[in-house]
Design a protein around this nucleic acid. Structure first.
Length: 117
DNA sequence: CGGCTGACGACCT
DNA sequence: GAGGTCGCCAGCC
């Protein structure tokens, strides 16, 4: 069943652990840049956990300080649930991104490079 | 403690 | 391009 905020209950409180590390990385993405689930997974040291990164994003509470809209799918695609995707497109456009066909154009140039601490 | 639930990605037909 | 398969795992009930 696809993610549906109207049916999947209240937002959950963010706890310590994996989710928190994901959120910390997303907070490090500056305005005007984007990153991907896979890049975050790689930055965490495990290439294969892009899916888990997505799950972490789904658990974000509303009103958090995490710029979730800067996280796109591989290749710059917008792949979240339709309602959220519209919101994401609006926010990305507001940060100067050009969008087309559910994609971030110039994705390669706007992709954030995570630096090791 | 077991079961369930998910914003993915690479690769294959 | 459109499907399907498989690997991946934390957090909540």
């Amino acid at each position: 069943m696809p993610y549906d905020p109207t049916r999947h209950g209240p937002r959950r409180i963010v706890g310590p652990g994996f989710h928190e590390r994901v959120f910390a990385l997303v907070r490090a993405v500056p305005t005007g840049s984007v990153t991907t689930y896979g890049d975050i997974a790689t930055a965490l040291g495990r290439k294969g956990v892009a899916r888990q990164v997505g799950y972490a994003m789904a658990a974000l509470p509303e009103g958090s300080d995490v710029p979730w809209w800067r996280v796109v799918a591989a290749g710059g695609r917008l792949s979240v649930a339709p309602v959220t995707r519209r919101e994401q497109a609006v926010r990305l456009a507001a940060e100067g991104h050009r969008l087309g066909d559910d994609r971030v154009l110039d994705f390669a140039a706007r992709r954030h490079a995570f630096v090791p601490c």
